[in-house]
């Protein structure tokens, strides 16, 4: 009997954590409890920034993390947060198919193995005022928390503000920040309607969480257990994508029900954002080099 620990960063009732719990259950059932995975949700074992390192050095055998968190280390981890490159679940799936082997290769070079990746809901803009074009975004107090959001802020002429996620609610309430980007789901979880009233469903990008194992820990399993694990992983990936596709409309309805003005971006705003997206894709390609170009070429085919 083998016991694995799986640190994850999001609360236990987040769909990602729920999916992980089901995955752990599947694995236990398929191996007759020979492999037991304990999910430590809510950053209760390791915090998000440390999870990859913990798996890499064998402190835990398996972990889940937001893939783009590691984009500074290798641009391939950030392929799914290039704004307006893949804006629907269908496109996102296609992008994942095109980029998967590159991500697998990168992880393998670090002694890890990818099991599966599951998307979040598409990213939109939360604001305290009407945004009819990108010109309206000029001067916004814009939360910049990674390379992409900082670049967008820069390109639209917003004022980038550094605020940690933990302080965001207060920062919005007191006016330190008045616009930021995240998904309808995260906005719903953090009760965004208490301090902002507009949500633009720009579907800017669809980030993913990836679940991966330490290769040595995986190799130590016997063949039937390995197969059971991979099978449960494939099932978790399918289930996870379906969960989020089904739920993303529900989240938009919830924001509406709470009194937020939920709308698609005006053609003008969309056009302006698209242009910024092209600029950012070019930025990303420059960083990602030949490998990145191959991924984008495969995706656009």
């Amino acid at each position: 009997q083998t016991k694995w620990n799986l640190p994850a960063a999001y609360p236990a009732d987040n769909p990602h954590s729920e999916n992980l719990a089901l995955f752990a259950k599947d694995v236990a059932a398929a191996t007759g409890d020979k492999l037991q995975i304990t999910v430590h949700a809510n950053a209760s074992l390791f915090k998000a920034p440390d999870i990859k390192r913990a798996v890499q050095t064998g402190q835990v055998q398996i972990g889940e993390v937001l893939m783009s968190l590691h984009e500074n280390e290798d641009p391939i981890y950030g392929v799914d947060v290039v704004p307006f490159l893949a804006t629907s679940f269908a496109e996102s799936k296609k992008l994942w198919a095109a980029s998967r082997s590159a991500v697998e290769k990168k992880l393998a070079s670090q002694g890890m193995m990818l099991l599966f990746a599951v998307p979040w809901a598409p990213q939109g803009i939360y604001a305290k005022k009407d945004l009819n074009s990108v010109e309206d975004m000029k001067g916004l107090k814009w939360r910049a928390y990674n390379v992409g959001t900082a670049r967008i802020g820069e390109l639209v002429g917003a004022q980038s503000v550094t605020v940690q996620a933990a302080e965001l609610a207060q920062a919005l309430a007191t006016g330190v920040v008045n616009a930021f980007m995240t998904s309808a789901a995260t906005g719903y979880d953090s009760k965004a309607w208490e301090s902002v009233d507009h949500f633009y469903d720009t579907q800017a990008w669809i980030p993913k969480n990836m679940t991966f194992v330490n290769k040595a820990a995986f190799d130590a399993l016997d063949k039937p257990t390995q197969d059971a694990l991979l099978k449960a992983a494939a099932a978790a990936e399918t289930r996870g994508w379906k969960m989020w596709e089904d739920k993303s409309g529900w989240y938009l309805d919830q924001l509406k029900a709470k009194g937020m003005k939920v709308q698609a971006p005006s053609p003008q705003l969309q056009a302006g954002l698209k242009k910024i997206g092209e600029q950012l894709t070019a930025d990303w390609l420059k960083k990602a080099g030949a490998g990145g170009e191959a991924v984008i070429a495969a995706y656009k085919k």
Binding site: P49, Q56, L69, H70, N72, E73, Y145, N146, A150
Partner: peptide, 10 residues
Amino acid sequence: FNDMAQGVLS
């Protein structure tokens, strides 16, 4: 491992 900070600056 070439570990990088995960914020705006690499």
